[in-house]
Design a protein around this nucleic acid. Structure first.
Lengths: 357, 357
DNA sequence: GCGGGGGATGTGAGCGTTCACACCCGTCCC
DNA sequence: GGGACGGGTGTGAACGCTCACATCCCCCGC
């Protein structure tokens, strides 16, 4: 009677549409299952007429290869699991978007598994995240859990990673991609210095390694090059709240006139702390962020920040993996954009210069 | 002889660690492969001593069941593909986070596939996203592509969805979860009205269906209940930019003193438009957002908004799916939080009242 | 005319798992 | 004492695919 939605009751339901297999297609097309397989995998040695016939039947029957069976039989897996520790941060989610896009284009299935601080360390734990031994893995290693997972990954896994910086101790041949955060941070710092600020303070995101982060490094580079003393960076987290907490002491100090932040969320927190302390931005204090999240152009004051091409980076990372997996057929590695300083409203000339004007 | 972790590389081969299978375990434990299978699947009828022995061998050999083979053989798939159209919006990414969390707890693998406007319509296209016919699907259907995918999903798929509102034409038995946006929007509107505002305007996110969205509906409900005229909602998109563009005309009108926005990003755009038009928030204009994104408490002015428990919703959605898949073993459905109005700085008494004070 | 190459196709054996069944052996009951 | 029962276990056949190999046929060259 009613035609709609037979409600897929998992148990003894009389349904089970019995997916069409390679044998069904073969029978219908009057060829062997192997020929169908060849057509599906675009093997060269199939007669054109046969190929057409098979393709017709495939379309007619609505055949879809069963990925599981294919993988089981030792074929190409065309599936990748992304290991990441937080899908909701802008950097990670934009990178994931890029990966998914590239993966879909290459007809890969993408899985996702969230790392927590504890589990990322043991190789077995990490390996267990993957559905099939041998399946490819992509790690978004912007933070410590990510890096640990990347390091813990058994060497036999085909894998690539998006990292803050290449591991320096290890052999440099693991496929990984990164952005030149260091240069970008240096550029942002030089920009602030060029505005006449005596110095620039830095509120840092957590570093992904035991060493100081790349962005902090770049900030120090610029300060050092300008012959300025190197103040201690302030430790922030990833959230606006952590930026706010870290900045409260900072903004109370009138000699601080420029702050570079490890990301835009931190900058938001700094902005709020500044406002509460009665400091005008950019009049009394310049604040520069990092990442250029979609909101950053619209907050008040609009954030001067460093735009990072996370999506491109994600595509690039997948590209490296594809190259590893299928060296001959993989397309050229897509390039991603260079970091770019976007000047908006939250930064301006040092108060001293301003007064003089 | 050697007791410790025999490092799976069985032979002298350079690579190909040749994962240990159920047969390896069986042989080592002196039982049949089927008994191992029973142990792994915690089948009741296995002698305790046998079970212990097998478990020991499993641990020793580092055996992990091969998901592909298991799925192929008709076992439980324990894998779910999430269909969503944008991983970077706060609502979707928070929901995804909740889903992933619940899925991991239930030992499910989660895949993700991004929908674009075109592909979401044809059932075959949607079905092809899934790696195995019969594999479970979760749809995040906050927008039109999501809803179309949900509708296009062949009925034989075990699936659940997070929706803006339940489909009204169809039989209500498809498993879906939603938040009471309508009541929340009504509450926010009443709140603004209670502040003395003559009326409240609405900048809408795109509706997921052909009808007006739930949030707009709630806004209308409240206006109607208060005996106010119903102005046309303004069409926004999802981005701050679209909120900005939509609001430019709005903020130019001095009779408009309160604006409700379909999400926090739109509200950010409205805030900027207001500022450019020289309108003080909340002095001249109250702005209320929706979603309570992590940034919203830190922007200036801090956004009054409706907090939505997206993560809980995601967990709930997965819970529904699990119930569908494993009716007897599934735990009770986790509940998720009610929407909650969070009053911050961007809203206040109507200018008229304020003047009087 | 015959051996040889190679394009086009078919055959059968796995891949690692679960399912349906058969089997063994005690225990209980009549 | 024999049959029914049922806990505990083994056997073989799927599942849908790819791999390695065998086979067929046609065309070539000598």
């Amino acid at each position: 009677m009613q035609e709609a939605t037979p409600a897929p009751r998992s148990d003894g339901g009389p349904q089970a549409p019995k997916a069409v297999s390679i044998f069904d297609v073969a029978k219908e097309a009057g060829v062997s299952h192997q020929t169908v397989s060849r057509v599906v995998n675009s093997h060269p040695k199939v007669k054109e007429s046969t190929r057409t016939r098979v393709l017709e039947v495939i379309a007619e029957l609505g055949y879809t290869p069963n990925r599981m069976a294919r993988a089981l039989a030792g074929g190409a897996v065309r599936s990748v699991t992304v290991l990441t520790s937080d899908t909701s941060l802008y950097g990670a989610s934009a990178t994931l978007k890029g990966i998914e896009e590239a993966a879909r284009a290459a007809d890969f299935t993408v899985g996702i598994s969230v790392l927590d601080a504890g589990s990322a360390q043991r190789p077995a734990e990490v390996a267990a995240r993957v559905s099939r031994p041998g399946e490819a893995v992509l790690v978004i290693a912007f933070d410590a859990p990510g890096v640990r997972a990347w390091q813990a990954l058994p060497a036999e896994f085909p894998a690539a990673a998006v990292v803050e910086r290449p591991e320096d101790g290890s052999p440099g041949d693991r496929p990984q991609v990164w952005l030149d955060d260091r240069a970008a941070a240096a550029q942002a710092t030089r920009y602030l210095l060029g505005l006449g600020h005596e110095s620039v303070r830095y509120v840092s995101i957590p570093s992904s390694t035991t060493r100081i982060g790349q962005r902090a490094e770049g900030w120090r580079d610029a300060l050092r090059a300008a012959g300025k003393p190197l103040p201690e960076p302030l430790d922030g987290g990833w959230s606006p709240r952590s930026g706010y907490l870290a900045a409260r002491s900072l903004v109370a100090d009138p000699t601080v006139t420029a702050v570079l932040c490890g990301n835009d969320d931190l900058a938001l927190g700094v902005l709020r702390a500044a406002r509460e302390a009665g400091r005008d931005v950019p009049g009394d204090l310049s604040v520069v962020g990092f990442d250029d999240a979609p909101q950053s152009a619209y907050v008040h004051p609009a954030l001067t920040t460093v735009r990072l091409d996370f999506e491109g980076l994600g595509r690039g990372c997948f590209g490296m993996l594809l190259r590893l997996l299928e060296p001959e057929t993989a397309p050229a590695l897509p390039m991603w954009g260079e970091p770019e300083l976007i000047v908006r409203e939250s930064s301006g000339p040092a108060p001293s210069l301003r007064a003089r004007t």
